[in-house]
C-alpha cells in the first residue's frame, strides 16, 4: 500500500478552474465595453482605472476582448471535447467489447489519423471548408476521436471478460446494457482524467489555429486570434499580449491541476 500524501492539486485546480469559468461566464453576458468598439482617444492606452487591461492600437478595450475571447475559446474547446469524447466513447466501447475484424480495422484507421499532428490535419480540413467557429469545432472534434477511442477501448478490453460481466451475460442482460450500464461506470475515473487532458489540448489547438489565422472569424475573437493580432505590438503594447495569454495559461493550468487531482483522488491508472 502506498502512503497517501495530502495533495493540493484538486483544491488549487478547482479554485483556479472555478475562477476562470466565472470570468468566462461573465464575458458571455457582460463586458465593460463593446469588444469591437473603437475609440480614437484611447488608442494604445496602458492599463488604467477605466481600462484595467489597457487598450489596443485601435482603441478597443483589452479586458472586454479578453472576456469575449475566453468565452469563445472555452465554448469551442468544450464543443470539440463533446464531439471527440462522445464519438470516441461509443467507438472505443464497441471496439473494446466486441473486438474482431471491425475493431482491428477501426483501430488502424485511428492510428493513421493519430499519426498526423492534429492541428496540421485540421488546417488542411479548414483550408477546404473555410474558417468559422463550426468548421473549427467539426475538424478538431473528429481529430480528437482517436485518442478517446483508444483510451476507452483499452479499458473495455480490461473489463469485458471479468466475472461480473460473465455473470450479467448469464442473467440475460442485453449487450448494450452490459456495455453502457455495467462496464462504463467503472471507467469514469480514467475517462475523467482523459477529458481534462483533452480539454487542454482543445484549448491549445484552437488557439494555435486562430493564431495561424485559419480559425474563427475576426468578428468573434478567441484568445488565439487576439494573440495573433497583438504580435506586431508585442514590445510597444505588451498588455495586448500578456492578458489574453494569461487567461489561456490560467485556464489550462486550472483544468490540468484539476485532472491530476481527480486522478490521484480516484487512484486512477491513466498515464
Amino acid at each position: 500500500m502506498k502512503v497517501k500524501k495530502k495533495s493540493w492539486y484538486l483544491t488549487i485546480g478547482g479554485i483556479l478552474t472555478a475562477c476562470m469559468l466565472a470570468f468566462t461566464a461573465t464575458g458571455l453576458f457582460w463586458t465593460p465595453y463593446s469588444p469591437t468598439a473603437m475609440s480614437a482617444p484611447d488608442r494604445n492606452a496602458p492599463p488604467s482605472a477605466a481600462h484595467p487591461f489597457g487598450c489596443d492600437q485601435l482603441g478597443r478595450d483589452v479586458l472586454s476582448r479578453t472576456l469575449e475571447g475566453a468565452g469563445s475559446t472555452l465554448t469551442i474547446a468544450l464543443a470539440v471535447l463533446v464531439v471527440g469524447a462522445v464519438c470516441g466513447l461509443v467507438i472505443g466501447a464497441l471496439c473494446g467489447y466486441y473486438g474482431g475484424v471491425a475493431d482491428a480495422l477501426i483501430m488502424r484507421l485511428c492510428d493513421a489519423v493519430a499519426a498526423f499532428p492534429s492541428v496540421l490535419l485540421a488546417l488542411v480540413v479548414l483550408a477546404l471548408t473555410g474558417p468559422g467557429k463550426y468548421n473549427v469545432i467539426g475538424a478538431l472534434g473528429v481529430l480528437f476521436i482517436p485518442s478517446f477511442a483508444r483510451l476507452v477501448r483499452g479499458e473495455f478490453l480490461k473489463y469485458r471478460d471479468r466475472d461480473f460481466v460473465q455473470s450479467a451475460r448469464l442473467m440475460g442482460v442485453s449487450q448494450l446494457r452490459i456495455i453502457f450500464i455495467h462496464i462504463l461506470p467503472n471507467i469514469w475515473p480514467v475517462l475523467l482524467s482523459g477529458l481534462t487532458i483533452g480539454f487542454n489540448n482543445a484549448v491549445l489547438a484552437e488557439a494555435s489555429m486562430s493564431y495561424l489565422g485559419i480559425g474563427v472569424n475576426a468578428t468573434e475573437p478567441s484568445l488565439g486570434y487576439m494573440l495573433k493580432d497583438a504580435q506586431g505590438v508585442l514590445f510597444t503594447l505588451p498588455w495586448c499580449t500578456i492578458f489574453p495569454a494569461l487567461a489561456a495559461i490560467l485556464l489550462i493550468l486550472g483544468v490540468g491541476l484539476l485532472g491530476e487531482g481527480i486522478r490521484e483522488r480516484m487512484g486512477g491508472t491513466a498515464a
Binding site: 461480473f164 460473465q166 455473470s167 469514469w188
Partner: peptide
C-alpha cells in the same frame, strides 16, 4: 437460465 457462482467474490460483483 442456469446461473453460476464464481470462485472469486472480488471479481464477480460489479465494483461500481
Amino acid at each position: 437460465r442456469p446461473q453460476m457462482v464464481f470462485q472469486d467474490p472480488y471479481g464477480s460483483l460489479n465494483p461500481a
